[in-house]
């Protein structure tokens, strides 16, 4: 099938059509200049020139803070009853798509997380091509993660070349056929080519705890957590239980956590696996550039650049990663 082409000015019509199926969210620039994924209601157009949003789309799958269980004497612990509403995410870049692919592997694996699973299956993902800026690093490290989407819009002269890559995408494409046209277009290369690469991961030596860089990074880090909160593949969470005033009910809350926080590796008795920030940095590095647990060998960094953009201390792990990982590749 020849690629489908959509002229730019049909964007609004397309969104209108998508809204017939579900709520549509995409990158919107607020009055304060911040670009956030938010509702594309009639009259609100996505900012497709923005390179990144402040928070990644993970906020739709794992809310920054949410009740995961409620307890009453009568019913015991109950999961939230609210069903996931269908949601179309429009304008996702390759890194964010790969980020969702990573989260899928964590939360839809052997023991799927029910909240995540429900939300994820109610989502339709529509990607848009992009060109890396100076904060991005997708082009520096080829990620084995797949930038999977239902539909993908490639920027081309005068509009978009639209391709589908799932049955749901096919269906949608069929339904909006009248605002597309078949046209021979040259689809230029985009950032998707940096993803889905076969990993040639040799077993890597342990990260050297004595490397002075860990301490140097720690000395500059404010511990604000922005780098992880804004990272599309940081999924650490804390679980807290708050009792009700009646003494007979409770709410269990899941909240985004951060491996740079003191409590992250703290266990009963006040003991801690990672007492100082330098150790925590090494841990963060390990997850971002090498992966761990069942996903060992799969770096979780998808190169979106958010951690660099939001760090008040301007920390950038790229030079260190270039050095340490290149040394392993040889």
């Amino acid at each position: 099938m020849a690629p489908q082409f959509m002229v730019s000015h049909n964007l609004e019509a397309l969104l209108e059509r998508l809204r017939q199926y579900a709520e549509v969210h995409g990158p919107v620039r607020g009055d304060d200049g911040v670009v956030r994924f938010s509702a594309l209601t009639p009259g609100i157009l996505p900012d497709l020139s923005a390179i990144r949003t402040l928070l990644p789309p993970k906020k739709y799958l794992l809310h920054p803070q949410e009740i995961i269980l409620s307890y009453t004497e009568k019913d015991g612990y109950q999961a939230p009853s609210e069903g996931a509403r269908p949601l179309i995410l429009f304008g996702l870049h390759s890194c964010d798509l790969a980020g969702i692919n990573y989260l899928d592997q964590i939360f839809l694996g052997d023991d799927p997380d029910p909240l995540y699973a429900a939300r994820r299956s109610a989502q339709t993902l529509i990607g848009v091509s992009c060109i890396p800026d100076e904060f991005c690093s997708c082009h520096l490290a080829r990620s084995p993660l797949k930038p999977l989407s239902d539909l993908f819009f490639h920027h081309v002269e005068g509009g978009f070349a639209v391709t589908s890559s799932s049955p749901r995408g096919e269906e949608l494409l069929e339904d909006v056929k009248d605002i597309l046209e078949e046209r021979e277009v040259n689809i230029p290369e985009d950032a998707r080519r940096f993803f889905g690469q076969v990993a040639s991961m040799r077993v890597r030596p342990e990260l050297d705890a004595a490397l002075p860089e860990w301490q140097e990074l720690a000395d500059c880090c404010l511990g604000c957590g922005a780098c992880s909160l804004c990272c599309p593949t940081c999924y650490c969470f804390d679980v807290l239980e708050f009792s009700g005033l009646d003494g007979r009910s409770a709410e269990r809350v899941r909240r985004w956590d951060n491996c740079l926080f003191k409590s992250h590796a703290q266990v009963a008795g006040g003991m801690s696996f990672r007492k100082d920030r330098a150790e925590r940095f090494r841990y963060r590095y390990c997850h971002k550039y090498r992966g761990f647990g069942p996903l060992q060998g799969i770096p979780s960094c998808v190169g979106c650049g958010r951690c660099r953009v939001v760090c008040p201390a301007g920390l950038d792990l790229r030079p260190l990663a270039e050095r340490l990982e290149a040394a392993c590749r040889e």
Partner: peptide, 26 residues
Amino acid sequence: AGLVRGVLPVNIDYPVCTECRMKENL
């Protein structure tokens, strides 16, 4: 409510920025 159940509040160990970023503020 914690006192009713005999527990003390959990110490917070993150700065204002953390919740600020969670709220996606400028």
